[in-house]
Design a protein around this nucleic acid. Sequence first.
DNA 1: CTGTATCCAAGGGGATACTG
DNA 2: CAGTATCCCCTTGGATACAG
Lengths: 115, 115
Amino acid sequence: MNIKPELCRVDDALDIIVGKWKPIIILHLLKNGTMRFGELKRSIPEITQKMLTKHLRELEEEDVINRVVYPEVPPKVEYSITEYGKELEPIMVAMHEWGTKHALRKQQKTIENRG
Amino acid sequence: MNIKPELCRVDDALDIIVGKWKPIIILHLLKNGTMRFGELKRSIPEITQKMLTKHLRELEEEDVINRVVYPEVPPKVEYSITEYGKELEPIMVAMHEWGTKHALRKQQKTIENRG
DNA sequence: CTGTATCCAAGGGGATACTG
DNA sequence: CAGTATCCCCTTGGATACAG
């Protein structure tokens, strides 16, 4: 460990990533590049409009995503990951991998306790 | 991106890491290996006893740390990172690095807006 | 289609006092 | 020394209705 705990910036990263649906929003945009509001909504069936809007605004505020409004009727709004936001990918991958192991581990523990 | 958003396990990792003082607790134990309760408390001056206890219990529950009680008076309790918990280090490092950039970026933005 | 506005419940976290 | 026990506030997020 070469990170000094007192000087650590882990929380700065967590502040951006944490939010019930933020990781999955980021993953969708990392994967697809650009998506419309409704497209995201359909990709994440459980999310409410309110939370999708709120999370998107917060991610935009932190320069993780871009928001482009087309002045049409009906409205069309496209969201895309920024170059900067793309740098979150290694973190996502590392967490996904650790999370996969962890889920497996918990599952095995449950089985042991049953037997 | 080879992670399918619908099958993503990022949240499983976040569930373990998120908590006001959890990252810093993990970093201290990654760095020092083994620490006593009071030693951790002194290393994180702002934390309350209640939250330190709560976070330590949760991390123990997830096998990220070990808790060893020495039956002495006064009591002595030692916490240490598990081998499994050590696997969180790459995530911590990745988040710290991104977080450092992000903090710098926000700082520059503030300066721009002042000018 | 892409949002706002409002109300409400759950729980995370702080302050403080007490204990074996 | 290493915790518990209470009380209390604030934020997060869900449900629902409305709007340009």
